[in-house]
Design a protein around this nucleic acid. Structure first.
Lengths: 328, 328
DNA sequence: CTCTAGCACTCTTCATCTTTGAGTGACAAC
DNA sequence: GTTGTCACTCAAAGATGAAGAGTGCTAGAG
C-alpha cells in the first residue's frame, strides 16, 4: 500500500496523462502538491521502482504502467459526477418509452461513443435464455424452402435451403407440427440435441425428405449460437492520439473484424469490470470496460474499448448510469 | 487517339506502376521498346502534356493520371487469362451444388479478395423483385409482439414491438388473415402503400389496437428498403502500399462505416463498370469495379474496391467469370 | 524529320551534426 | 525530510551534404 503523498502523486500523474497523452514531468506537479520538483522526482523514482510508473526514455517524464493504471482504478479513482448535458441526453432516451430497450441501449452507446471517442460493442447472447416459441417452413419456388424459428423473446432466425427433389406440403406440415408440439418452450441451446434424438427418429419413418428438413432446422438453430454483435462508433477510437500510426490502426481494425473478438468481449461476471492492456485478450494497447446487462432474462454484454489512457472514472460512471436505467 | 508507340509506352507505364507502385523512369522502358531513354523521355513529355501522365515532383518518374488509367482501361487493356489455380478454386465453389447461390458469391469473393488484396462488397437489393409471400404476428410475453414478413424469394424480416395495452389474439389473427388474403404476391416496395390505403381503413373499423399493428407491419416493410450490404475482406485493401498512411486509412475506414456508402456501391447498368478515382463518389484514392448480378429476378451489386493502381485486367476477368457462373 | 548521346539541373533520400528544451539523478546544504 | 543546483541524457527539429534517380534541353548523326 502506498503512502498518502505517493498515492496522490500517482493519481495526479495518471490523470494528467489521461488528459494530455504526454509524459508527465516533475515540475508539472509542483503547484498542486506545494513542494519542489526535486521532492517529486524522488517520489517518482520510488514509484518507478515499485513498477507503477515508466519512462519512455532515460530523461523523459513519467507514464503510468499497467500496474499503475490498475492501482489507480482499484484505489484512487473517484466516481465522476456527470455533467448536466451528458445526463440530459441519456435521460431523453430512457424517458422515451416507445423505444425497444435494445434500441435505447444502442442509442445511449452512440452518445457515449461520440462523447468519449471510444468504441462501444454490444454483444447479445440470445441462445441461453430464449425458448422456442414456434417454427415454420414455407415452400418457395424451384425446390427452395425457408425455415423460420421464433423464440419467446421475439428473436427470429431463418435459412433458405435447396431441396433436391420436390417435397410435399403435407410432409412439411407434419414435421413442423411435430416440432411445434414437442419442442415448444425448450431452451434454444437444447433444441439441436432434442431435434436429433426425439424428432429425427420419428420423422424419418414417415417423411421421405426428412434429411433435408432436418438439416434446414439444424442450421437455423446453430445460427442462434452465433452471438450477434454490434459495433457503435467503430472508428471513434482511431481519433485517440495513440492511433496515429498506420500499423497500430491496421492491427486494431483487423482485430475488430476478426470473429474471435467475441471471446474478448463476452463477460461472465456481474458488475463493471476493467481489463487494462494485457489483461484483455484483444489488444495490448487498449483497455476494455465491460458490463453485463439483463433484460427480462435475456443477457448480453456492453463493452467500451478505449486506449489504456482512458477516462476510467467517466466511463465507469456512465456505465453505472446505463445499468441502473436498464433495470427499470 | 494516340499513335502506336505512344499508346504502347502508356500501356507499359501503367502496367509497370500497377506492379511496383513506384514512379516509372524512362530508362526502365528502354529494353522493352528498343530505343534510347531520351526518345522515351520525349514521348513521356508528350503524354504528360496530353494529361495521361503525371510527375510526383519535377525530376521524378511518371505516374499514370486518372485520364491515363481511363485510356488504358478503355483502349489498351487486354483480358487476362487467369492462372489455373485461381480458376480451380472458383470452380470447386460453383460445382458444389448444395450451396445457396448467395453463399457461393460470398465464398468466391472471399477468394478474390484474398488473392488480390482488394475489398469486396456485396449489395443485395431485396425490395424490387420480392413479392409478399406471407405475414405473421405472434404475441410474446409482457405486451410485446413480433411481426414477421416472408417473401417469395425466401427473404425474412422481423420486428419486435411493444403494444401499450394487451391485445387479443383474435384481433391479431383477423389482421394477418386480411393482409395474407389481400396483399400476397404484391411487390414488397408497393406493400407499404397498399397497407395504408387498402388495409388500414378496414381494420380500423373492427380492431381496437389497429394503430399498433399497422405500425409493426409498416416498420418491417420499410426495413426491406434498407438494402443489405456485406463486406468481404474489409481490411484487405489496407495492405496496399497507398494505405501506409494513418490519415488515409482512417479516411477510408470511416467511409466504409458510413451508411452513405450504399450510394457509392449500387450499380444501375448491366455489365462490368469501372470507376476510377474521382469517377466514383466514395474516395478519390480508390477505384471501384462493379457488376450487377441477377439470380431468379433478384438483383444485387458486386463491387471490388482497390487502389487506382489496381490490376484492372485481372479483376475484370474474374468478375466476367463470376457473372457467367452466376447465370447458370 | 527523327533519334540519340550528353550534360546541366532538380529533387528525394539518407546519414550525419547541431541546437534546443524538457527532464532526470545525485549531492550538498538547509 | 526537503530543497536548490548542476551535470547529464535524450528526443525533436533543423541544417548540411553526398548519392542517386530522373528530367529537359541541345546539338549532332542518320
Amino acid at each position: 500500500m502506498l503512502g498518502e503523498r505517493e498515492a496522490n502523486i500517482l493519481k495526479l500523474i495518471v490523470e494528467e496523462y489521461i488528459k494530455d497523452a504526454k509524459p508527465v514531468g516533475s515540475s508539472k506537479l509542483c503547484e498542486q502538491l506545494d513542494c519542489s520538483s526535486a521532492t517529486i522526482r524522488n517520489e517518482m523514482s520510488y514509484l518507478e521502482n515499485l513498477g507503477y510508473l515508466e519512462k519512455t526514455h532515460i530523461s523523459s517524464g513519467r507514464v503510468p504502467s499497467e500496474k499503475g493504471y490498475r492501482y489507480y482504478v482499484d484505489n484512487l479513482m473517484k466516481p465522476k459526477n456527470m455533467t448536466g448535458e451528458e445526463v440530459l441526453k441519456l435521460q431523453t432516451i430512457f424517458h422515451n418509452n416507445s423505444l425497444q430497450i435494445s434500441d435505447a441501449i444502442s442509442k445511449s452507446l452512440e452518445i457515449i461513443s461520440e462523447m468519449t471517442n471510444y468504441t462501444s460493442v454490444i454483444l447479445g447472447s440470445a441462445s441461453k435464455e430464449n425458448k422456442l416459441k414456434q417454427v415454420e417452413v414455407l415452400p418457395l419456388e424451384s425446390n427452395n424452402i425457408v425455415a423460420i424459428v421464433i423464440t419467446d423473446k421475439g428473436h427470429v432466425e431463418h435459412k433458405t435451403l435447396n431441396i433436391e427433389s420436390s417435397i410435399s406440403i403435407d410432409e412439411i406440415k407434419k414435421t413442423t407440427d411435430l416440432i411445434n408440439k414437442m419442442l415448444v418452450d425448450t431452451p434454444i441451446d437444447e433444441v439441436s440435441e432434442k431435434l436429433e434424438f426425439e424428432i429425427k427418429p420419428i420423422i424419418s419413418k414417415y417423411v421421405k425428405q426428412h434429411e433435408a428438413l432436418y438439416n434446414a432446422f439444424y442450421n437455423v438453430f446453430t445460427d442462434f449460437a452465433k452471438k450477434n454483435m454490434q459495433f457503435v462508433g467503430k472508428t471513434n477510437i482511431l481519433k485517440q492520439p495513440e492511433f496515429n500510426d498506420a500499423e497500430k490502426i491496421k492491427n486494431l481494425i483487423n482485430k475488430f473484424e476478426d470473429k474471435k473478438i467475441i471471446n474478448s468481449i463476452e463477460e461472465q461476471e456481474d458488475g463493471i469490470h476493467i481489463y487494462i492492456g494485457s489483461e484483455n485478450n484483444l489488444d495490448e494497447d487498449v483497455t476494455i470496460i465491460k458490463t453485463k446487462y439483463n433484460i427480462d432474462g435475456e443477457e448480453g454484454t456492453i463493452a467500451i474499448v478505449g486506449p489504456k489512457r482512458m477516462e476510467y472514472d467517466k466511463v465507469v460512471s456512465l456505465l453505472e448510469y446505463l445499468n441502473s436505467n436498464i433495470e427499470k
